[in-house]
Design a protein around this nucleic acid. Structure first.
Lengths: 235, 235
DNA sequence: AATCGTATGATTGTCAACAATCCGAGGGGT
DNA sequence: ACCCCTCGGATTGTTGACAATCATACGATT
């Protein structure tokens, strides 16, 4: 009797929001690009009103921003945004890891090991695209297995922003072997239940990324005083 | 030249979303209450279309949920939701504290001490309402001073959900002295730069809250397998 | 009495048209 | 050449109306 599931379709704006999210993640809309309402509405074959509901969701999520009567644009990530993204990911993923350590850490480690293997083989055959996909999948799975819906929702947005950072800065995993090794170490520490090591590895992973993407800036450096969300990496 | 600020008004749906958020936080809409579009639109003196854009923002935020053709309702928080809220707050506020420890920890400690003083005097005169307000203000300030926009945005929603938990479960800070003491200890540890103590105090603070609100459940207990967001604390 | 079918009112989902605003091109003046 | 003004096209913000769906009450049937 419990295999019976809800039948009702989800809301249209939710579906459109998800598609737009994927498109932004995959770079089909570059940072700074305007989300023209008329064109998008035609593409989805819905009215502008319905489309605007979906866009407002992404605004709330922080993926879009804009000014009144000028339109909505894909957010451009400044250097402090990059740091902010990884600071927040660090918070989310450390919390997820701790939940897993208090739960089924062996089972989760096994699942993560599967993704890790795929990442390693992608590294071996030099498939950058597959490496990136496995990277995202690894972290998404880590948070998903924490069981926390709120952490998952936040991680979803943060991983999109991560991809935006990497793409915008043309970062191509110059040392993919090292990247894979970090993930492998994390799987091992998780399986062994070594909390301090797990948290340290995640912290180091995020710090590495920040230093690679924004030279001269580390994960734990103080963020600018407050206010600056200038809207551009170049401005 | 830098004191010149943007002039353009923010979007209407953003304004309405903020007001609705405050209303939900203050219990003007109880959990489970339906957000009737016609009535709300009339109350704000806007069309239903504009109002729906604001509602969709709150759905994305997780404060509202609903089913197609049935309407949107204020989320009811289950026991695992309560735990989830505090798990996530723990992640956010620990990260904020660590940022502050690497930044202007003295200045922030001074500011927090001000809120702490107000909380203590509210406790002395038995003003439950003021205690709750100071509590929220304390944690909001902590995250704000981290300088991370993303942590702030997440904390905003989480503090609303915190108030919803407390209100729904009629928790009235039975031991307000202890509550104030915990905040005082946090201010001290922050000022001294004792990271391990700061993180431990935040962790204990959240764990206390979970145990008080959901008997028999702790902050670090494993969350249910995944799926259950049943929508009700009572169902 | 209990169940099913039906009508009815209310609410949500969707849309196309109108009003307000912005951007750029072009012209006139200095 | 430079600046200012004006105008037209295009885009966004907002609205009211229509279609689809749901909840409830009521009566018919077994």
């Amino acid at each position: 009797m419990s295999q019976l599931t809800r039948v009702g379709r989800e809301s249209t704006s939710s579906i459109i929001a998800r598609q737009l999210r994927a498109a932004i993640r995959d770079g089909e809309f570059e940072p700074g690009a305007q989300m023209g309402e008329a064109e998008l509405a035609a593409r989805f074959d819905v009215s502008r009103g319905t489309l605007r509901e979906a866009l407002q969701r992404l605004v709330e999520e922080g993926l879009l921003s804009g000014e009144r009567h000028r339109g909505l644009f894909v957010r451009e990530l400044s250097a402090s945004d990059v740091q902010d993204v990884y600071v927040t990911r660090n918070a989310i993923e450390q919390a997820a890891a701790r939940l897993i350590l208090h739960g089924d850490r062996i089972g989760v480690a096994d699942e993560l090991a599967g993704v890790y293997d795929r990442m390693r083989s992608a590294v071996r055959r030099g498939d950058q695209r597959a490496v990136g996909a496995a990277d995202v999948e690894f972290h998404e799975l880590l948070v998903a297995r924490s069981g926390s819906h709120r952490l998952m929702r936040m991680a979803r947005t943060l991983l999109i922003e991560t991809r935006m950072c990497i793409r915008a800065l043309q970062d191509a995993y110059e040392l993919p072997e090292e990247l894979a090794a970090e993930h492998g170490a994390l799987v091992g520490a998780l399986r062994n239940g070594n909390e301090a090591l797990v948290l340290g590895l995640i912290d180091a992973h995020m710090d590495d990324a920040v230093r690679r993407l924004t030279p001269g800036r580390g994960l734990h450096d103080p963020l600018p005083p407050l206010d600056p969300e200038p809207r551009a990496v170049g401005s």
